[in-house]
Amino acid sequence: MSITADAVEAARAEGRSAFIGYLPAGYPDKEASIAAAIALAENGADVLEIGIPYSDPVMDGPVIQQATTEVLARGFRMDEVFEIVAAVSAATDAAVLVMTYWNLIDRMGPAVFARRLAEAGGAGAITPDLTPDEAEAWIAAADAHDLDRVFLAAPTSTPERMRRIAESSRGFVYGVSLMGVTGARTEVSDAAERVVSAAHEAGAERVCVGLGVSTRAHVEEIGAYADGVIVGTALVAALRDGGPEAVAAKAAELSGRG
């Protein structure tokens, strides 16, 4: 059974869309990143995304790039991810996904990565630069360890690709709200609603929307049609400026508990 799907469905049962929050692993240091992720879950996040810092993050805007570059500069190693996932999943009820660029999984080997993630209590992985076309090894490894696999769907994805993405995903489909990289924006593009309906039509049971979401108003707007709303940059900026307490406050505001 999918831990992530359960978390999204539990929110649905409460008559709301799921709230999904992203934070980079090890930022600003290991302990604070664990504390921030727990604070995020305690203030309304149903699903946590722990981003693994990577040297070449082509889908990330300046705020997340700056944070992950700092983490790498202090000598971050992959072992730390599993320690963080273990600590966070032990302390919260939220589903804990990692978000990672493919080469980090590739280098470790998909089977070893999946085993270690499952052992740490992780729910699965979001893979921003892996499409189902190249995902055979990852799907096999994730299945072997009963992990969720979240693929991205874009405003430019054809109906055919949408079907492949929906079939290949487990947990939810990550609907990209706009053509661009991560980063807070003042308005949410109207492409988001079209992505969600296209993914639903293609057979996806759960479609969550991310990129550019930074305010409670965005969360409400997107929550009206999506099964979940994903926030990253706004939380990372809060962590940067005010530590785990600021993440708690921002999460409470975004989830409507503030």
Binding site: T131, E134, F151
Partner: peptide, 12 residues
């Protein structure tokens, strides 16, 4: 080889 890219660029 292959095409290890974000979905957003696949159509392009």
């Amino acid at each position: 080889g292959g095409r290890w890219m974000p979905e957003s660029l696949i159509a392009a």
